[in-house]
Design a protein around this nucleic acid. Sequence first.
DNA 1: TGATTGGTGGGTTGTTGTGGGGAAAAAAGG
DNA 2: CCTTTTTTCCCCACAACAACCCACCAATCA
Lengths: 148, 148
Amino acid sequence: MASFKGTYVHQLDAKARLAFPSRLRAQIPEGGTLTVSAENCLTFYPAVLWSDMERELATLDPLNPDARDTKRQLFGSAEDVTFDKQGRIPIPFHLRDHAGLTKEVVVMGVGDVIELWDATAWQKRHVRIVADASDIMRRARGGVPHSP
Amino acid sequence: MASFKGTYVHQLDAKARLAFPSRLRAQIPEGGTLTVSAENCLTFYPAVLWSDMERELATLDPLNPDARDTKRQLFGSAEDVTFDKQGRIPIPFHLRDHAGLTKEVVVMGVGDVIELWDATAWQKRHVRIVADASDIMRRARGGVPHSP
DNA sequence: TGATTGGTGGGTTGTTGTGGGGAAAAAAGG
DNA sequence: CCTTTTTTCCCCACAACAACCCACCAATCA
């Protein structure tokens, strides 16, 4: 299984294209799926991982309204991404909107997925993470629900 | 199995035709069935999935009044859908009426089906979903009945 | 320093959504 | 049963957008 790491800052150009960092791109030549995250960022799933996600969503009860809304949120926002010859991906408006992407985009390898953040949004979150690092990492083990 | 994803906003023209997004159309060249959803939107079932649905509805208890109403709702409103040479589908009045379609229509891939929403109706629901995302997704797993 | 790789910008060409006219088919009415 | 009206489908035309291609600059490495 691929393991992504590292942080890269790239520019969104006038056509809403993003040059994907070549180090990360080399691990996923065949592309994958981009969709919204629970936080205000975007999550890129490599092809294998996305099909796992699809299988999991398919097990949700179709009679449960919350399950339907969940599927709407994840599937409706998802976009297949492939790279052009320059290694760029277009980012549709609704995804830019969800993550607040304007110009500077932080592309970050996070283990099995890749996240896309607006640069300033990430900066703000990053200082919080650094400040509370020890608490956060302790709670990460317990699976205790966190408060915003 | 086909997996539909992505959100597209298209216009309903003066003849009540809707241009089906080409990305989605490519996955279902032979068309399918369009009927009402439990929410105020329309659901498009690809041919294979609709026959499953028919079989499932056939198993409902004919002595249960709710079962009879369910069959009335789904079968009675259903329309076979094929594309014209421009990739458009006509949407009959009773379906437009149920979903409140006027001009702007949101076409959304939701896994195994495709949903059609009035643009403003979807917008309102979407902000609610995003706001309550973590709660909704938690309830989606548990199958816990939700309160409006 | 020369060469290669990686990020950025922009022009050009197809494809796709949208509108509307006209022919064929179906429905309604005498 | 035939005529008139309505509906449905097919075709053409245009505009907007997305994909593809080529070119430039900067940074890195030999």
